[in-house]
């Protein structure tokens, strides 16, 4: 609008009819961003959006570049080798153990955390007395903010001694499976890591699931109640089906956290470079833990090798998060990014 008045003023000053506006001018008029302030501000805000894209691209490019430097000199198979000797000449290292440990610890964490988190979310939305649920939800929000290194310290100094008895019991009764056999070592093993990771990702899964369960239409629940359903039947028939995709994406977000968790694993696990059938004996490692604990002694080449393993972690978390987002995108109302 402003533009047209300006133009009319211009034509007043310059009686000969102006040439019809060029295509570029028309475009600009349509967009309405002709003032210098507008143009600068649009440029700034669009620029920072583009900067974010550039950062993401740069992360991928630089990690890949440094990783290829390392992998090209690797004498062992990068994907399948069971060792990490970057100081050897020629160097030999591979990520098989790390990939196994990362997946196993995350699976344990998910197996423990998801049911409990869903139960807590149900507790907060459908079971807890109204007066309790507000403060509890608040506390869980705060717990999501506890730094991971504090979880790590707590896990190493308090959780680990407590696991002794449980491990002994598992060994006595389930030791024959091989998965739960235990040689009485310190319980700094994959199972302990999994339990700690479960505790750490509990708040985030709970928060997102709670948001979803809160959005279940009241009418669905009332319909079920009116048909004489018990509270459990209401949950099973109305609440859980509605919240399923939300719970899945919440779990994926939790999984993303568990995969990339560094400090808690580095403090609790006593690592080695082998795959063990038993979850109770110390050993194994994860991508992030391996980077944190090998970093200080690593040469420049060793750091490149660690970057190569970090690239694999990056790709895995991208896939997991992408899947979570795809599920969320189907239901736009809630996004876990704020949790």
């Amino acid at each position: 609008m402003d533009i047209s008045t300006k133009k009319s003023q211009n034509t007043d000053e310059a009686p000969p009819p102006a040439a019809p506006p060029t295509q570029a001018e028309q475009k600009r008029a349509a967009r309405g961003a002709t003032r210098p302030g507008d143009r600068i501000f649009l440029g700034l805000s669009r620029g920072s959006g583009i900067l974010l894209l550039v950062i993401m691209a740069a992360i991928a490019v630089f990690l890949t570049y440094r990783a290829t430097l390392a992998i090209s000199k690797d004498e062992a198979n990068f994907l399948t080798a069971f060792e990490w000797n970057t100081n050897l000449i020629p160097p030999k290292f591979g990520i098989a153990v790390l990939a196994f440990g990362t997946v196993v610890s995350s699976i344990i964490a998910m197996a423990i955390a998801v049911p409990i988190a869903v139960a807590i979310a149900l507790f907060l939305t459908h079971y807890a007395p109204r007066r309790l649920s507000g403060p509890i939800a608040y506390v869980i929000d705060l717990l999501a903010a506890v730094p991971s290194i504090v979880y790590g310290l707590w896990g190493a100094l308090i959780l680990v001694p407590q696991m002794d008895g449980l491990f002994g019991w598992l060994n006595n009764y389930l030791g024959w499976t091989g998965i739960f056999s235990w040689d009485e070592g310190a319980p700094r093993s994959m199972l302990t890591v999994g339990v700690l990771l479960a505790i750490m990702i509990l708040p985030i899964i709970t928060n997102v699931s709670r948001e979803v369960f809160r959005q279940v239409p009241q009418t669905h629940e009332e319909a079920a109640l009116a048909l004489g359903a018990t509270r459990w039947e209401v949950v099973r028939m109305a609440v859980l089906p509605f919240g399923r995709s939300g719970v899945i994406s919440a779990s994926m977000l939790g999984l993303g956290r568990a995969l990339g968790e560094t400090m808690a694993v580095a403090t609790v696990l006593s690592p080695d470079f082998d795959i063990h059938a038993s979850l109770l004996n110390p050993g194994g490692g994860t991508f992030a833990q391996n980077i944190a604990s090998k970093f200080n002694e690593a040469t420049e080449f060793g750091r490149d090798a660690l970057i190569a393993s970090g690239l694999v972690l990056f790709v895995i978390t991208l896939l997991v998060n992408g899947a979570a987002r795809a599920i969320i995108a189907r239901r736009k109302e809630y996004s876990g990014a704020n949790a």
Binding site: G49, I50, L52, L53, I55, M56, A58, I59, F62, L63, Y65, R66, L253, G256, L259, G260, E261, T262, A288, I291, A292, R303, L306, I307, G310, L313, F314, T317, L318, V320, N321, G322, A324, R325, S335, A337
Partner: peptide, 24 residues
């Protein structure tokens, strides 16, 4: 694209961000 990558970026493990600057 920005929306999508912001979503993806929330999931980057902190150690990967560290490795990126380290590579620089």
């Amino acid at each position: 694209a920005v929306t999508f990558f912001v979503d993806v970026m929330t999931g980057i493990p902190s150690i990967v961000a560290g490795l990126f600057i380290l590579s620089l």
